[in-house]
């Protein structure tokens, strides 16, 4: 028993080190949608952690919002974000949506919500959790009736209540 312990201990440490290395900035797009990024039919946007840091210094006036609370709600959310990746296309919308849904590992990503509207437009929210907190939010929109396929990945500690509140602020 005693002789095995150091071995187990070492294995454990190596495992922790490996998983820690794998965790850094993991996101679904790097994992499943690399070919979309290099596909010319897609428009791609990436906001790096560095840019997110710079937002704090910006004047909220650039947001062009109706009031300060609204801007505050946005800034409040951005504070928690570490990366945003957006992939959009208006070609092959239904096909891409189906493909994307099939690609995402449901063991890692849990479906938060699926909305299918009458016109066939579908939206799906998926979350990846780490330590019981949302580490990544994926928004998948498309479907047979939609005119745009959207794939968004928000990386960072997210609070769904804050996101929900944001729309309410904007609708005011």
């Amino acid at each position: 028993m005693l002789r095995i312990k150091p071995v187990l201990f070492t294995l454990l440490l190596a495992g922790i080190a490996l998983s820690a290395a794998a965790q850094t900035d993991a996101n679904a797009i790097d994992k499943y949608f690399q070919q979309y990024v290099n596909d010319n039919r897609f428009s791609v946007v990436y906001i790096s952690p560095k840019l997110f840091q710079m937002f704090g210094k910006l004047d909220v006036g650039v947001l062009d919002m109706d009031n300060d609370t609204e801007a505050q709600a946005v800034m409040d959310m951005i504070k928690d974000l570490r990366g945003l990746r957006i992939l959009t296309t208006d070609e092959n919308v239904a096909e891409f949506y189906k493909e994307a849904k099939a690609k995402i590992n449901t063991k890692e990503y849990e479906t938060l919500m699926t909305v299918r509207e009458k016109d066939g437009n579908q939206v799906e929210f998926l979350v990846r959790e780490a330590d019981n907190k949302i580490a990544e939010l994926l928004l998948l929109a498309g479907g047979p009736g939609a005119d745009e396929f959207v794939l968004m990945s928000f990386v960072g500690l997210l609070d769904l209540n804050k996101i929900s509140r944001l729309a309410k602020e904007m609708e005011k």
């Binding site: 951005i78 945003l84 909305v115 959207v150 729309a167």
Partner: peptide, 18 residues
């Protein structure tokens, strides 16, 4: 920042719609 705002807004709207 504008793009982020749009993205968050979109996510928020969809979330609330759902």
């Amino acid at each position: 920042l504008r793009i982020t705002k749009e993205a968050l807004g979109k996510a928020s709207r969809h979330l609330n719609k759902g």
